[in-house]
Design a protein around this nucleic acid. Structure first.
Lengths: 126, 126
DNA sequence: CGGTATCCTTCTCGATACTG
DNA sequence: CAGTATCGAGAAGGATACCG
């Protein structure tokens, strides 16, 4: 079989659609929302209270985006007044595994990163 | 052995410093720069040419940020005119493994995501 | 070659007010 | 309860010009 001579063969390529998807599911509030929904399904205002200082607007936008991308499911219970429950989808669960890996990486390497920052900052002063 | 009653036990927590680090190393241009430097050390203008439509300003900012966080190393060769080489650090290599995992995830799940998007968008029209 | 500095536009995001 | 609508401040990011 014919291998390309490209040194990056086997490495996933960064394309605009992939980059866009990562932007939509790895943004600031999405991580908090997914973490929360991973523990238990929640109502809109439950999420608001659970997540520090998120505004209604941002939370709504985040939930819509995650729902559109298939990461969370929105269930409307037609009672009075209406109740809306958000829950994580199977797809969202696979994403959460990845986010956990990201957070483990930051935990493991934060000391090295902080050393690098200190070194960089002091070198600039001189 | 004593398990805590907390459902999320063992899950890494999202804190501001961790969130900030991810923002600084997973942004749009960083992924391209790391991918490029993972294949070979490169000069500034080499990177500019290799990465589609990045401006000088954005590339400089990205490289400085990655350098400050210890992901890339900047080597100045004092010739005339000056030559500057950027290369990935060991820490940057561990990050690249994670980015590869992210890109594999998007590759695997993109079909599901697009189905979810289509369903969401058509439901909104009705 | 490898950057800075400046201007200017765009876009995000919070604050606030209102609704079914 | 679960949103939508509107406004404005601030930050991100491109275009351009200049520098050692």
């Amino acid at each position: 079989m014919q291998e390309t001579a490209h040194p990056a063969a086997g490495r996933p390529q960064i394309t605009a659609p992939h980059r866009e998807l990562l932007d939509q599911v790895l943004d600031k509030w999405s991580l908090h929302v997914l973490e929360e929904l991973c523990e238990r399904p929640s109502r809109f205002n439950e999420l608001r209270r659970a997540i520090p200082v998120v505004t209604q607007k941002s939370l709504t936008a985040t939930l819509r985006r995650l729902e559109r991308n298939g990461m969370v499911e929105r269930v409307v219970v037609s009672s009075r007044p209406v109740a809306v429950e958000y829950r994580i989808s199977p797809l969202g669960t696979t994403l959460q595994d990845l986010i956990d890996a990201l957070l483990r990486w930051t935990s493991v390497n934060m000391p090295d990163v902080e050393r690098a920052r200190t070194r960089f900052d002091t070198e600039q002063d001189s």
